[in-house]
């Protein structure tokens, strides 16, 4: 099996530097790291990839059963590490990817030596005393939104189909992000992401970990960031002055600064 093709693996940066994996979250692909990559390429070997079912991954590799649990995605991460023979790599995961990184580090401790968890949440649904921020019904609504946008996409896709001569990169972006988000695969990823409960996995983290949360994140509120920090022994928590769930996009300088400082401290 060609893992590089399956996960659309891109390797850039300094071949001699320590490896850093950048893992996108649900709903996007490796392009979301475009503001992060420039801050890392000088000192690090930067590995980007798309999860199966996202971006430009190989759609034929999609097996619903495998990706019905975060372990399936984590196995893919381990296989990417093995294919590139990475050792002690730092895994930077956004949102659900932060939890996938936790699982991958547990499966292959020799491969993953540090974790950066960007806007992580180990469980999105409220549970007794735990406040995840959402109810099971809310998650169903998200699945509905996915479904209705499947039809709505025709409007989005029109400029791509017609071609957009003066902004070719726009067509590229749309193709990257929308084409590949097959609704059936997105549905599986959404269910796996938002119905997962990885709270117990946090306690098993044994590698240096940086937790990044945002002052104003509708998906992973600060109390969730604090919970993750509390659950991982020895972890560092940095709260970014950022709004939204994607600080690496909305506040790239502050995010890059926090990540590079943490990575530098590992050496």
């Amino acid at each position: 099996m060609d893992v590089a093709r399956r996960n659309n693996v891109t390797v850039t940066g300094n071949p001699q530097g320590p490896a850093v994996l950048l893992a996108h979250g649900f709903g996007c692909d490796q392009n979301m790291w475009r503001s992060t990559v420039p801050a890392l390429v000088e000192d690090y070997r930067v590995v980007l990839f798309d999860y199966v079912g996202s971006g430009r991954s190989d759609p034929s590799a999609f097996v619903p059963d495998r990706y019905a649990s975060l372990e399936g995605y984590a196995r893919d991460v381990v296989e990417v590490c093995e294919a590139l023979d990475l050792r002690d790599a730092a895994f930077v995961g956004h949102s659900v990817s932060a939890m996938i990184g936790v699982l991958a580090a547990d499966m292959a401790p020799e491969r993953i030596g540090a974790l950066v968890m960007v806007a992580p949440s180990p469980r999105y649904i409220d549970d007794e005393d735990y406040r995840g921020g959402f109810s099971a019904q809310d998650i169903d609504e998200l699945l509905d939104a996915l479904e209705s946008n499947y039809l709505g996409w025709s409007a989005v896709m029109a400029p791509v189909i017609m071609g957009n001569a003066d902004r070719p990169e726009l067509g590229e972006e749309l193709k990257n992000s929308f084409c590949a988000t097959d609704p059936d695969m997105a549905r599986v990823f959404a269910r796996t992401t938002f119905l997962s409960d990885s709270r117990d996995d946090l306690k098993r983290v044994r590698v240096p970990t940086l937790v990044l949360d945002c002052t104003n994140d509708a998906i992973a509120p600060r109390e969730v960031g604090a919970f993750v920090h509390r659950s991982i022994p020895g972890s560092t928590l940095v709260t970014l002055d950022a709004t939204g769930h994607c600080p690496h996009m909305s506040a790239p300088e502050a995010t890059n600064e926090a990540i590079t400082r943490f990575l530098a401290g590992l050496r």
Binding site: G27, S135, D138, A145, E173, L174
Partner: peptide, 24 residues
């Protein structure tokens, strides 16, 4: 709430990346 999840995970990052987004 479901729409907000979709907005945060899909709409907002794409808007950042593309500068525009339409027909969502």
């Amino acid at each position: 709430v479901g729409g907000r999840l979709y907005h945060e995970t899909h709409f907002a990052p794409l808007l950042r990346m593309q500068g525009e987004i339409s027909g969502i």
